[in-house]
Design a protein around this nucleic acid. Structure first.
Lengths: 137, 137
DNA sequence: GTAATCCCTACTAAATTGATAGGATTAATA
DNA sequence: TATTAATCCTATCAATTTAGTAGGGATTAC
């Protein structure tokens, strides 16, 4: 299941992408419009900023803004930041690979093969989707 | 992430599919060979039996067996029994649909569209894969 | 009758999730 | 410069889920 964190994060990014003005968008505005607990959202936008997807401006009239064009923000990156590994098992993860304790031989593991296929198909979707597609911008 | 329950379940099914003999396969044998805690595995095989994928025989020389040919046991069914909904959000689940509290209009939701695509691609994999593919039988 | 096996329920520890609380820091502006 | 409005940061918490354990009941082969 998709975590609330990811869901809220995607909605927030969409909201920012759709905002017309040049001014940064404030957390309070997004929280109110998208019905997300503000303090929770603060933390989410913070991680998106630390990952380099968002930029921020502090103090009065501060807020968050995209650091690239929506069409250049890929879902692979966003999902990895918000949700973590895309693969369903660490032993088929490209970015977070880890061997299983149980499997003596990965290449003979039936689960392994299936999960590689799932990963590749999910990856295909996320690679072909950008924030522009989500936000219609 | 894939739960241990699902992983163990898939390994157990594979093991049973590969077993040559006509005799039912005992939990203890699977647990030992696949390095799965036996009591935990008992519960997993029980849910697979209740769902109709496995059959069982009680008492001495009892055990579990497949109720269909491996090539007729689809991953869609297995995954739904073991892992639950295939969709990442209830609002795009075919079998467990539920409306989101937050979304006023599903069709305008950016997350919704993305998750439908992910679901369709994952579903495609699970529909095209059977236990025969996993077990090489 | 006994041993082996599945069946069932209840419990528990650890991790994760979805928040909340409280304030520190920074910047605009009156 | 004082005030206000923002982001930033850390700690805490309750609820849920996960992974596993415990103990015994029911059934069957021999």
């Amino acid at each position: 299941m998709l975590s609330k964190k990811t869901k809220y994060g995607l909605k927030a990014l969409t909201f920012i992408a759709r905002s017309e003005s040049d001014m940064p968008v404030q957390v309070s505005v997004i929280a109110k419009s998208e019905q997300i607990p503000q303090k929770f959202l603060e933390g989410i936008l913070l991680t998106l900023r630390k990952s380099g997807i968002l930029g921020s401006k502090k103090g009065k009239h501060g807020g968050y803004y995209l650091r690239s064009l929506p069409s250049e923000i890929k879902m692979t990156d966003v999902m990895r930041v918000l949700e973590g590994p895309i693969a369903m098992v660490p032993c088929v993860s490209l970015n977070y690979y880890e061997k299983c304790d149980d499997c003596p031989d990965e290449h003979k593991c039936s689960v392994h093969k299936l999960m590689i296929e799932v990963r590749d198909n999910t990856l295909k979707v996320f690679r072909n989707t950008t924030l522009a597609d989500l936000s219609g911008v």
